[in-house]
Nucleic acid binder design. Structure first.
Length: 803
RNA sequence: GCCGGUGUGAUGGAAUUGGUAGACGUGCUUGACUCAAAAUCAAGUGCCCUCGGGCGUGCCGGUUCGAGUCCGGCCACCGGCACCA
């Protein structure tokens, strides 16, 4: 009989679905395992081969856990709000809801075709009002606790999407999504105070098992630095506060720089002798897009504030103040003390403007370049700090500043608050109203979900307001607080909102009374293993950790962290090693592979293709190898075999394989796990397997290629299904052979190999090695000075000529 | 510039963490089957060789009985951050 993968795969997918083989049970007595993959954005292009890589990986792990006796939650859903859907809907005059439904249907078919063991009764869709009801609920709680606030600020404005972007969404000064120019624009926005959680987001990384590069990237993004705030008095009598990580260099501060947007400049306007030049510089800086700002990094520009100066608190010297756009308004205090001797940027600026450079840390040549090494330098020209190391000086000066009330220790973060409004239609409505009398007021919880109204046009208005703003009968409402006239917020939430808590909804997806029921959260706690892309490390992963911590604070969840373990997969590249993209025309559609070879082959190949963590190019010829492997299995097991025990000839190889495949799955070394299975099949071609051999083999194969495993299981007449069998145990003693082939080296160079009994003692190994003819020849006229034996591996003989 | 990572046959990649480099797959060569091709099965496949061996994991050096693996110094490529004081 032919291996008719199309029929077989359909048959088993249907049976798994009917018999609910992969349903998770809330409150089961079994130990629980919650495995999670990042739910997809159901785009119009459908699935491409990149999607199933992480899905298959966690599917293998979930299947193995079930076989190990766990109650497994392995869910799937759709992160369906977002711009591409909305843009497509506008272009084709459709409702985004319709587009979303079509796309979800297509994605579902494609996912089911690949045989993933998702629990299809727990599907969530972020655009479902029953879902976003709880997204809105969380927002109201954030608002209630003062963590959501509205502020007017310069924001990143995408000129093409006509939309505000979070800092995380701006890449190299252009829009992450469409690549268009991003400019600064003053807008009133809802913000979430993620910065209030900055320290906890760093500290709690120590409690979770995330791969190191994820932890490092998150720490870098949050960007904690310790230093001091120092107050400088100015000739106007104002205090100009700066943040510095190098308070030790205070004696070397020869000028100051403020961001062009700094508030004190307005206050000083009538004192500035060169106000026109200052205004002109401010205007030029404001006009620059982020892109231009980064482009013009090299040349330092600025304007000196004539008529105002500052006083260095330790030297009492009067020093000039400049404005320059190399100082950012958004970090620290928006002003710095400039120490050109020991900061590269200050040094460049000082050279440009002919400002004095004083050496306060010995060890470099400050005339040639700034000396920034903190480890070796010794303080000089610094009064009471002279002779101290940089670290000692930092400590001493900070104490001194604190005592004199001129400053204090200070920690700063690069992380900024999360811009949470979008002027678009296809997102969760923000459930607030604005009342002239009461200000911003939350709508009552009983009115949730606040549904998206149908509008005629989804396009952003020309002044950058949300399409919802045109819906006057929706916008005009009454204030829940005073009953007077009020207007609804017309901005919607960003795409990241729905994905910030979806893992909780999976635990209890149909609960109408809570985002997750108490029993459900008590049982599932948190995600045990979460796999996702590195591109989400500073966006989704950080945002959802923040929301989870907030939910922990208000008593909704019992754990501080949402995810115990985080791993990451590499991308699948096009055949030429380039990123797969529609424009390059190198996108591989999984449907084509499934049609030609079947889902089991695709699953195997995607896992066999290379190191799971690294990017790998697709190969359309190498897929065949995995199909051949399945064909060879089919040939072996199609007909009923004999013998329930392991066959003598294969027993040891089977025990080794059970061990290796099990360990490899845990370490996500799927490629070598599959190689082990392939080797075992090669062994079966040498020594015909018994029915018992095949039984274990099919169980091991089942997580990787579940359809063919269940089919052949049935052919052999075994009870039940392969996917529901207990994971086989191995006998350690049977994974070692009675004899070992070991290397024989002379002087560290491999000369030959000999076979010795396993665990043979050094003397035995030596005598066997020396008895080898080749070695005997080499040893003629030589004496052995030293012998190194590594058990079961090698023997190394160090020799010299006989005297 | 800073922070991560990678570099192994024609090719995708293995190598129990210092112990026989190249598992497994693709490709290629040869043979069997076939009228023939495909498919399948079997054998071979790092490079050089005077058949004793010699050389090989980006480059140069070091530690070691022994280095793809550890240390020092370079080079190339990929990812992230980027005037963060």
């Amino acid at each position: 009989m032919k291996y008719d993968f199309t029929a077989i795969e359909k048959k088993w997918q249907k049976r798994w679905m009917e018999e609910k083989c992969y349903a998770a049970v809330n409150g089961s007595d079994k130990p629980k395992f919650y495995g999670l993959i990042e739910f997809p954005y159901p785009s119009g292009q459908g699935l491409h081969v990149g999607h199933p890589r992480p899905y298959t990986a966690l599917d293998i792990i979930a299947r193995k856990r079930r076989m190990q006796g766990y109650n497994v939650l392995f869910p799937i859903g759709y992160d369906a709000f977002g711009l591409p859907t909305e843009n497509y809907a506008i272009k084709n005059h459709m409702h985004p809801r319709t587009v979303t439904e079509t796309n979800i249907k297509r994605f579902t078919e494609q996912l089911q075709m690949l045989g993933f063991s998702f629990d299809w009764d727990r599907v969530v869709d972020t655009t479902d009002p029953e879902y976003y009801k709880w997204t809105q609920w969380i927002f109201l709680k954030l608002f209630e606790k003062g963590l959501a606030y509205k502020t007017s600020m310069p924001v990143n404005w995408c000129t093409s999407c006509k939309c505000v972007l979070a800092n995380e969404e701006v890449v190299n000064g252009v829009c992450e999504r469409c690549g268009s120019e991003v400019v600064r624009r003053e807008k009133s926005q809802w913000m979430l105070k993620i910065t209030e959680y900055a320290q906890r987001l760093i500290d709690d990384l120590d409690e979770v098992d995330f791969i190191e590069r994820v932890k490092i990237q998150q720490r870098n993004w949050i960007g904690r630095s310790t230093g001091a705030e120092v107050d400088f008095t100015t000739t106007t009598g104002d205090v100009l506060t700066v943040f510095t990580t190098r308070p030790d260099t205070l004696f070397g501060a020869t000028y100051m720089v403020m961001a062009p947007e700094h508030a004190l400049i307005e206050k000083w306007a009538d004192k500035l002798e060169n106000l026109d030049a200052v205004r002109e510089y401010q205007a030029a800086a404001a006009r620059k897009s982020d892109f231009e700002r980064t482009e013009l990094q090299k040349d330092k520009t600025g304007v000196r504030l004539q008529g105002v100066a500052a006083v260095n608190p330790v030297t009492s010297t009067e020093i000039p103040i400049f404005i320059s756009d190399y100082v950012l308004a958004s970090y620290g205090t928006g002003a710095i003390m400039a120490v050109p001797g020991h900061d590269t940027r200050d040094w460049e600026f000082a050279k440009e403007f002919g400002l004095p450079i004083i050496e306060v840390v010995k060890g470099g040549d400050v005339e040639k370049e700034a000396f920034t090494d903190c480890a070796t330098g010794i303080m000089t020209n610094s009064g009471f700090l002279n002779g101290l190391s940089v670290d000692e000086a930092k400590k001493k000066i900070t104490e001194w500043l604190t005592e004199k009330k001129l400053g204090h220790e200070k920690v700063n973060y690069k992380l900024r608050d999360w811009v949470f409004s979008r002027q678009r239609y296809w997102g969760e409505p923000i459930p607030l109203v604005y009342c002239e009398k009461c200000g911003w007021v939350a709508i009552p919880e009983s009115e949730l979900p606040l549904r998206l109204p149908d509008v005629e046009s989804y396009e952003t208005t020309d002044d950058g307001e949300s399409p919802l703003s045109k819906m006057t009968d929706w916008v005009n409402t009454t204030c829940p607080h005073c009953g007077g006239p009020a207007k609804r917020e017309t901005d919607t939430m960003p795409q990241w909102a729905g994905s910030s808590w979806y893992y909780l909804r999976y635990m209890d997806p149909h609960n109408p009374d809570a985002l997750v029921g108490e029993d459900a959260i008590k049982y599932w706690h948190q995600v045990d293993w979460y796999n996702g892309g590195m591109e989400h490390t500073t966006l989704h992963l950080l945002y959802s950790r923040f929301w989870h911590k907030f939910l922990y604070d208000i008593g909704v969840v019992p754990t501080k962290e949402p995810y115990m373990k985080r791993t990451s997969h590499g991308m699948i590249l096009g055949e030429g090693g380039e990123k797969m993209s529609k424009s390059r025309g190198n996108v591989v559609n999984p449907n084509d592979i499934v049609d030609e070879y079947g889902a089991d082959t695709l699953r195997l190949y995607i896992m066999f293709i290379g190191d799971f963590e690294k990017a790998v190019p697709w190969s359309s010829t190498a897929v065949k190898g995995c199909k051949r492997f399945l064909d060879r299995i089919w040939n072996l097991a199609e007909n009923r075999l004999e013998g329930e025990e392991y066959s003598k000839a294969n027993e040891s190889e089977i025990h080794k394989a059970i061990k290796k495949v099990g360990e490899d799955i845990e370490n996500m070394k799927f490629n070598t796990a599959i190689a082990t299975l392939m080797s075992l099949v090669n062994v079966f071609y040498e020594n015909k397997p018994s029915r018992g051999d095949i039984k274990t083999f099919l169980i091991l194969l089942s997580p990787f290629a579940p359809h063919i495993a269940d089919e052949l299981w049935e052919h052999q007449g075994f009870e039940g299904m392969a996917n529901a069998q207990p994971w086989p145990a191995y006998d350690e003693s049977k994974t070692v052979d009675a004899e070992k082939e070991i290397a024989v080296q002379v002087g560290g160079k491999l000369k030959t190999t000999v076979v010795v009994p396993v665990d043979a003692d050094d003397e035995t190994v030596k005598s066997i090695a020396c008895a080898d003819e080749k070695i005997r020849k080499i040893l003629t006229g030589m004496e052995i000075v030293k012998t190194i034996v590594v058990k079961n591996k090698l023997i190394n003989l160090i020799i010299k000529p006989k005297q």
